[in-house]
Design a protein around this nucleic acid. Structure first.
Lengths: 136, 136
DNA sequence: ACTTTATCCTACTAAACCTATAGGGTAATT
DNA sequence: AATTACCCTATAGGTTTAGTAGGATAAAGT
């Protein structure tokens, strides 16, 4: 299941993708438009900035803005920053790999086998979808 | 992320799929073979039985067994019993649908749009994969 | 009948994670 | 100097997860 954090993060990013590039948008504006708790959204946008997806500007006329063109931001990047692994199980994750404790041989594991298939498919979708696609 | 319950459940079902049909296998046997805590596995198999996937037999020579031919058990069924929804977000789930609080119009929601795509793809894989496929 | 085997069932707990919220600090603009 | 708006850490409350405990029940063998 997607966390609320990820869901709200995607909505906020999509909102920003619809704006003029590099024009800061206030947290409060996004919060009101997308019905997201202001304080919660604040922490989400902060983490998106720290992870290189957003830039920010303080003071009057300030806010958050996308650092790149929406069509150059694939959902893989968004998902990994907000949600973490895309795979359903760590033993099949590219960026967050972990070995299973109970599994002597991954290649012989039924769970590994099917979840690898699912990951490949999901990855393909996220790779080929950008923020620009979502904002249309 | 898959819960351990689901992971262990799939492993147990796959184990049973490799056995002679309708020959009961003891929990302890599966537990040892798959490195799963016996007591935890007990509750998992119990829920699989209550949800119509397994049959059981008590006493000596007892254990759990599959009720259907492995090739007639698609992963959609397994996943829904063990993990619940296949979709990553309730507003896109077939069997566990829930409306989003914050979303005035689902069709205009970016999150909905992409997660629907992911669900369709994942569903397709789970529909076309049976326990028999996993046990080979 | 009695013993052994093995599932059945409920309840409980410790830890982890999620969803925020609080409360002030910092920087830019007017 | 005042206002605006992001910056940052900590924390609280709720939910979920991953197991554990402890006995009840039923079937089979002797």
């Amino acid at each position: 299941m997607l966390s609320k954090k990820t869901k709200y993060g995607i909505k906020a990013l999509t909102y920003l993708a619809k704006q003029e590039t590099h024009v800061p948008v206030r947290i409060a504006t996004i919060s009101e438009s997308e019905n997201i708790s202001l304080k919660f959204l604040e922490t989400i946008l902060l983490s998106l900035r720290k992870n290189g997806l957003l830039g920010s500007k303080k003071g009057k006329g300030g806010g958050y803005y996308l650092l790149k063109d929406p069509k150059d931001i694939p959902m893989t990047e968004v998902m990994r920053v907000l949600e973490g692994p895309i795979a359903m199980i760590p033993c099949v994750s590219l960026n967050f790999y972990e070995k299973c404790q109970d599994c002597p041989d991954e290649n012989a594991c039924a769970v590994n086998k099917i979840m690898l298939k699912v990951r490949d498919n999901t990855l393909e979708i996220f790779r080929n979808t950008t923020l620009a696609d979502l904002s249309n």
